[in-house]
Design a protein around this nucleic acid. Structure first.
Lengths: 225, 225
DNA sequence: TCCCTTTTTTTATATAATATTTATAATAAA
DNA sequence: TTTATTATAAATATTATATAAAAAAAGGGA
């Protein structure tokens, strides 16, 4: 359900553990780094949706880490720090931190502030597309296009196409497809499948008499390319 | 230089005075209200750029004031409260407060958090209009116009339109829309949706029999263009 | 408070879209 | 060639959607 990734950058292993447990409890995926350098690298390689950054790191000064991250990292950074000094708070916020929490913090409050930050970030999800030849299936927007032209598919047609397409190159048996899309009691209704495969071919194939995307495996099933 | 207006809603006159001096020092224009009702009215009539809201008001509960404001006030609301209880903080943030500060607060920190909030609002201000064809939705002023003509929408109609429009090109399922707008227990009430989609089309489509903006995806949901 | 207006919810029904069935033609395998 | 399998078109059944309009609920002043 929740697949947001949070990166924790903190040198105290107890704090990391505590955060890890609580965040995973909320179904966040958790990444951890114990130094500033490691944190920056992990942020770059994993593109987390939010960073929890401790200011008191062993290698680089936390404010410096924040500044570096802010040059390219667009998502929220929440500062966690034992330093309760006003100048630190002001500096961090003015450097673009999303929020500032003093340790020891209350878990519930932290979680609420994380939700708050995520809401602010509300960046649209990265796209999830299957592209092959002129055919493009955008699983995110649920749009199918052939040569840039958007094709209208019924619900069943779309389900069938995505089932085939997400198993590209693999033969799916009639029974398997029928079970997946119509349900277990329809495994004998091969004719349904033929009708729908025909409709799909008319819509997505350049020449539906010579299908390149949905190939028949006689006596077995269909295969998508 | 700075012509931002800040509304202070607090019943303690000393706090109001303290805030007023410090904020005017930073060239903010300051408005003040000492009750929840007065605060809501001033927010409506003066459209301040930020609201500092005390939770402990004499007339209406602060959380209630926050909720009411959030139904139409789009700019940041920072909570100031003597109540340091975690549940209060969580409640306020989840109700859409921009930030939460406990009294007594440090002036410098408050000013930094105000700058931070203003920055967020700034970002939000940039792409606050959704324009497509003759239709224009201004999320900032909460106005919808077709061919320059302002259209009157009910609260639900507006929520529905903005939900669809902020996911342009993407199919939103009936269940998703119902959950977002009516709440999780309404996911079965597809007929509500049909009625409202019909009303919206009558208002925003050039020809509501041939809708170009809100497209039906039969058996699935609706899609906005 | 009551009355009036606006909005939401409910109900009914016509229409449109999709799913299923049937019939038959085309194709591939034995 | 014969048989099994697949493809296609078209008829029918089913389900989903659009729309109007009535009923109920919620707001908004005097």
């Amino acid at each position: 359900m929740n697949n947001k990734i949070i990166l924790i950058v903190d040198d105290e292993s107890q704090i990391r553990k505590l955060l890890e447990i609580n965040l995973e409890n909320q179904d966040y995926k958790v990444l951890m780094a114990s130094t500033g350098e490691e944190g920056i690298h992990m942020a770059a390689s994993h593109q987390p949706d939010l960073i929890l950054l401790d200011l008191g790191l062993p290698d680089i000064n936390g404010h410096e880490v924040l500044k570096q991250l802010k040059t390219w990292y667009m998502k929220p950074i929440i500062i966690l720090s034992v330093q309760n000094s006003e100048s630190d708070i002001i500096k961090a916020l003015d450097n673009g931190a999303e929020d500032y929490l003093c340790k020891p913090f209350r878990t519930g409050e932290l979680l609420a502030r994380i939700r708050n930050a995520m809401r602010h970030a509300e960046v649209n999800n990265h796209d999830n597309k299957i592209q092959t030849g002129l055919l493009c299936i955008d699983l995110n927007t649920r749009t199918v296009s052939v040569d840039q032209e958007i094709i209208k598919l019924t619900s069943t047609e779309y389900q069938l196409l995505t089932l085939l397409a997400s198993n590209q190159g693999k033969v799916l048996t009639h029974q398997f497809i029928l079970k997946q899309i119509w349900g277990p009691s329809f495994v004998e209704e091969t004719q349904y499948l033929r009708v729908y495969i025909g409709q799909l071919r008319k819509k997505i194939e350049i020449n539906s008499n010579d299908p390149k995307h949905i190939v028949t495996e006689s006596g077995v099933g269909y295969r998508f390319f």
